[in-house]
Amino acid sequence: MKDIQIVFSNETKIIELDKNEFNIEKSVFNFYDLADLKELTTQTTYLADIIGVIQDPNLIISRFTNKLHQQQSQMKFYIFDGNTYVRVTLWDAFAEQFHETLMEDFEKSFIVIIICARITLWQNEVDVSNIGPTSYYFNSNHHSAVHLRNELKFPQFADIMNVKKLAEPTRTLTVAKINQLGEEDIEVRTATACL
């Protein structure tokens, strides 16, 4: 007989059921806060489950030929959990399937759960990407998704989410141009090249 350990936390809820009833959740996740993902970028052992609101409804797939002359697909977007934005980069068939499912009914697919995601650091920014076991759920009835959906009803949440225009392309600026930036450019993403 195998020993089984059941762990209870302060989030554990006990519900008394009738003799012939039982309730086992369909899906169980171990979500990381998006703000805590950076610590996972230095290791390759653990994958992460994450949840967030897709920021940009106009998601597109880039198709290109890589340096090995192979066709690849890539989809980039940001998700937001109420506190933190994180970039998601999906690749190849997984990106194509994700995009197709999302476009079927975007209004119902606003909240995404990505499970078994690989967390890396790309251009000094946390990046969530897919590998073999990665999967996703749109518009889940999981209690965390329900909580996030309820948060979306508050105007403050939508205001915070819309402050950053992360889908805008990064501009490359000279030091002289940076000195000319005004208050309206506070949320603009820029990159500077030393020439």
Score class of each variant (00 low, 15 high):
residue 3 D to R: 15
residue 4 I to S: 13
residue 5 Q to I: 15
residue 6 I to L: 15
residue 8 F to V: 04
residue 11 E to M: 12
residue 12 T to D: 01
residue 15 I to A: 12
residue 32 Y to H: 08
residue 37 L to W: 05
residue 37 L to E: 00
residue 38 K to R: 14
residue 40 L to G: 00
residue 47 L to G: 10
residue 48 A to V: 02
residue 48 A to H: 08
residue 51 I to L: 13
residue 52 G to V: 01
residue 52 G to D: 02
residue 59 L to K: 00
residue 59 L to M: 12
residue 60 I to A: 06
residue 61 I to V: 04
residue 65 T to H: 04
residue 65 T to A: 04
residue 68 L to K: 13
residue 70 Q to V: 07
residue 72 Q to I: 07
residue 81 D to E: 02
residue 82 G to I: 06
residue 84 T to I: 02
residue 85 Y to H: 13
residue 85 Y to T: 02
residue 88 V to C: 03
residue 94 F to P: 01
residue 97 Q to D: 08
residue 99 H to P: 04
residue 104 E to V: 09
residue 104 E to S: 08
residue 104 E to I: 06
residue 110 F to L: 09
residue 116 C to P: 00
residue 119 I to P: 05
residue 121 L to D: 08
residue 121 L to N: 11
residue 122 W to L: 09
residue 123 Q to W: 12
residue 128 V to D: 04
residue 129 S to C: 07
residue 129 S to T: 13
residue 145 A to I: 03
residue 145 A to Q: 03
residue 147 H to F: 02
residue 148 L to A: 07
residue 149 R to A: 11
residue 149 R to S: 14
residue 150 N to G: 04
residue 151 E to V: 06
residue 154 F to P: 00
residue 155 P to Y: 09
residue 156 Q to W: 06
residue 157 F to R: 04
residue 158 A to S: 13
residue 162 N to K: 03
residue 172 T to K: 15
residue 175 V to F: 15
residue 176 A to Q: 15
residue 177 K to L: 05
residue 179 N to W: 09
residue 188 V to R: 14
residue 189 R to S: 10
